[in-house]
Lab assay of single mutants.
Amino acid sequence: MTFKAIINGKTLKGETTTEAVDAATAEKVFKQYFNDNGLDGEWTYDDATKTFTVTE
Rank of each mutant, 00 (worst) to 15 (best):
M1W: 13
M1H: 13
M1P: 12
T2M: 13
T2R: 12
T2I: 14
T2H: 10
T2K: 13
T2A: 07
F3P: 05
F3C: 09
F3K: 05
F3T: 05
F3D: 06
F3E: 06
K4R: 12
K4W: 10
K4N: 06
K4L: 08
K4F: 09
A5T: 04
I6H: 03
I6Q: 06
I6W: 03
I6A: 03
I6T: 04
I7W: 15
I7G: 03
I7N: 01
I7F: 15
I7M: 08
N8C: 15
N8S: 09
G9R: 05
G9P: 02
G9W: 12
G9I: 14
G9K: 07
K10H: 12
K10C: 14
T11D: 09
T11F: 13
T11N: 13
T11H: 11
L12G: 09
L12F: 14
L12D: 07
L12R: 09
L12E: 11
L12C: 15
L12H: 12
K13G: 07
K13N: 10
K13E: 06
K13T: 08
G14S: 11
G14W: 15
G14A: 12
G14C: 15
G14E: 08
G14N: 06
G14D: 07
E15Y: 14
E15N: 06
E15A: 08
E15S: 09
E15F: 14
T16K: 11
T16Y: 15
T16M: 15
T16S: 07
T17C: 14
T17I: 10
T17A: 07
T17M: 10
T17W: 13
T17N: 04
T18A: 06
T18Q: 04
T18C: 14
T18V: 13
T18P: 00
T18R: 04
T18M: 11
T18W: 12
E19D: 09
E19M: 12
E19S: 10
E19V: 15
A20N: 02
A20Q: 06
A20P: 01
A20M: 01
A20D: 00
A20T: 04
V21S: 10
V21E: 09
V21N: 09
D22V: 01
D22H: 02
D22G: 01
D22S: 05
D22Y: 02
A23I: 06
A23R: 12
A23S: 07
A23P: 06
A23L: 05
A24G: 06
T25H: 10
T25M: 10
T25S: 11
T25C: 07
T25K: 04
T25Y: 06
T25I: 07
A26Q: 00
A26C: 01
A26P: 00
A26I: 01
E27D: 02
E27N: 03
E27A: 09
K28Y: 06
K28H: 07
K28G: 07
K28W: 08
K28A: 11
K28L: 12
V29C: 13
V29W: 15
V29G: 03
V29N: 07
V29S: 05
F30N: 01
F30E: 00
F30T: 00
F30G: 01
K31W: 04
K31R: 14
K31G: 02
K31V: 07
K31A: 06
Q32F: 03
Q32L: 07
Q32K: 13
Q32T: 08
Y33H: 06
Y33N: 03
Y33M: 13
Y33P: 00
Y33L: 08
Y33C: 12
F34Q: 01
F34W: 09
F34Y: 07
N35V: 13
N35P: 03
N35S: 14
N35E: 13
N35R: 14
N35I: 13
N35Q: 14
N35H: 14
N35T: 13
D36F: 09
D36W: 11
D36L: 13
D36I: 09
D36S: 10
D36K: 09
N37Y: 14
N37F: 15
N37W: 15
N37M: 15
N37I: 15
G38W: 10
L39P: 02
L39A: 05
L39F: 14
L39I: 14
L39W: 15
L39Y: 12
L39M: 11
D40E: 13
D40V: 14
D40T: 13
G41R: 05
G41L: 14
G41P: 05
G41T: 09
G41C: 09
G41M: 13
G41Y: 15
E42P: 05
E42L: 12
E42M: 09
E42S: 10
E42D: 11
W43N: 00
W43I: 06
W43D: 00
T44H: 12
T44L: 08
T44K: 08
T44D: 08
Y45G: 00
Y45P: 01
Y45H: 00
D46W: 01
D46H: 03
D46Y: 02
D47A: 12
D47E: 12
D47L: 06
D47P: 13
D47V: 08
A48M: 10
A48T: 10
A48L: 10
A48F: 10
A48P: 06
T49G: 02
T49I: 05
T49W: 03
K50G: 04
K50L: 09
K50A: 06
K50I: 01
K50S: 03
K50D: 01
K50C: 06
T51C: 02
T51A: 03
T51K: 01
F52N: 01
F52G: 01
F52K: 00
T53M: 08
T53N: 06
T53R: 04
T53I: 11
T53F: 15
T53P: 00
V54F: 15
V54H: 03
V54R: 02
V54G: 02
V54Q: 03
V54E: 02
V54N: 02
V54W: 15
V54T: 02
V54A: 03
T55K: 05
T55N: 08
T55W: 10
T55C: 04
T55F: 08
T55M: 07
T55L: 06
E56R: 05
E56F: 13
E56Q: 11
E56W: 07
E56N: 06
